[in-house]
Simulated assay, not measured.
Amino acid sequence: MVNKSVSKSYDLTPTTQGPLYPPSEVLDADGNFIVEGYLVVPGPDGKPIRRWGRAIVAADTPVPKFGDLAAYTIVRELPARLSAADAGSVLHTLPLPLPANNYPMVFAPDQLPDADTVRRPSYPFHRTPIPDLRPEDGRKLTTPVTLGDWLGARGTLEVTVDDAARHGEFRFQFSGLIPDSLYTVMSLRAKDLDRDAPTRPGPLGVPNVFVTDEHGAAAYRAVLPNPFPDPALPGANRIISVVVLWQSYQQNYGGAIGHFGLGGDIHAQLKLPDPVFEEFVTRD
């Protein structure tokens, strides 16, 4: 019996958030987190819960043990329709070491095993110091990136599992991204956020980058072996989501998504907010 390939399409959601801590991978000019994603707030019984929202979160917000929740210190929530001032807020990288971070992960263990010892300030996106850049080399991003710009990103994903159920193809189409910029796509697997033994988030395909055109449009495709193993199998570590990341240093890191992660040198802009792909099962 020959199995038929299975496909499904998804719309990606604009965000500024990777995991919950740090609350965002983007800062404002005052050093506070700009969150478009899950806000951690007190629930009806006082215990922290998650709800999707948009807010400015204080830089000194509490940080719980990895895997636990602590309510964010919210400076103010932002409306669905941003004011001109909020839409014009200039986006910045996170400083190093990463603030409000509890993720126990080295993102590039072969390239930079001591990433947590590096010290750097926060930079406006358009002024991030690209290594070895000379003025005459023609930096392409020279104007500020605003929150309004960032949230204008759109993306679709089509996933197809082949007839033999051995490979998964991921096809993306993007618009409204930062023009003339380097991006990567991350695969989030089921155990990447395991509180006891998290696995390292990796790229969705290698080479794992794409470059937008002058209008912020792009396409990306990757084919991965056995991306959706049966979760009942020992050691199964399925892909459960994808995240589209802007590279602030405009560098590719081979088999790593970045050196520092989480707003240090990669910045989540589009993602699938909740686990998906349950309908797919692949095999070796």
Rank of each mutant, 00 (worst) to 15 (best):
Q17M: 09
P99E: 05
R76F: 02
G37P: 11
G202Y: 04
T199P: 00
I266Q: 02
G254L: 12
T73E: 04
A236P: 11
R189W: 03
A219F: 01
P198G: 01
P124S: 06
L69M: 08
P135W: 13
R139N: 05
S241E: 05
F277Y: 06
V90F: 01
S89I: 03
D60L: 01
Q173M: 10
V63K: 00
P42V: 05
F174I: 11
R81V: 14
L270C: 04
E169C: 10
L69G: 07
G88W: 01
M186A: 14
K65P: 00
G176K: 08
W52C: 00
F260Q: 01
L78R: 06
S175E: 15
A85R: 12
P42D: 05
N32S: 12
F260V: 02
P62C: 11
L272N: 12
A71S: 15
A164Q: 13
K8L: 10
A100W: 09
F210P: 10
Y123C: 07
T61K: 07
G235V: 12
I56M: 06
G148Y: 01
Y123I: 11
V6C: 04
R238G: 02
I56T: 04
T142K: 09
F170P: 00
A70K: 09
P113F: 07
D110E: 13
A236N: 07
S83D: 12
G138C: 08
A236K: 07
V185P: 06
R76W: 00
A71V: 05
F33N: 01
D30E: 15
R50C: 11
E158K: 15
R54Q: 08
E169L: 15
L224Q: 01
P225Y: 05
E214P: 00
W150Q: 09
A71N: 06
T16R: 05
V26E: 07
R166Y: 06
S9C: 03
I178H: 09
T73A: 10
I240S: 03
V145F: 00
G264P: 03
G155R: 08
P203W: 00
I178V: 15
S7N: 03
L112S: 11
P234G: 00
G18L: 09
G264S: 03
L182W: 01
F172Y: 15
P201F: 06
D163V: 05
R139K: 15
P131A: 10
I49S: 02
D230M: 04
R283V: 15
P19E: 14
Y72W: 06
R238T: 06
D213A: 00
P113L: 07
G254R: 09
K65R: 14
T117H: 12
Q247V: 03
H215R: 13
V75K: 11
F277A: 00
M105K: 01
P124C: 08
P179N: 04
E136C: 02
L69K: 11
V118N: 04
V244C: 05
R200D: 02
N237D: 15
K271Q: 14
F277Q: 07
V145W: 05
G168R: 09
M1H: 10
D68E: 15
T143I: 10
S24K: 11
P198T: 03
V40M: 09
L233D: 15
L98D: 04
P79W: 06
L188D: 09
V209E: 14
M1V: 14
P227K: 02
G205I: 09
N237T: 06
G263T: 01
L151W: 14
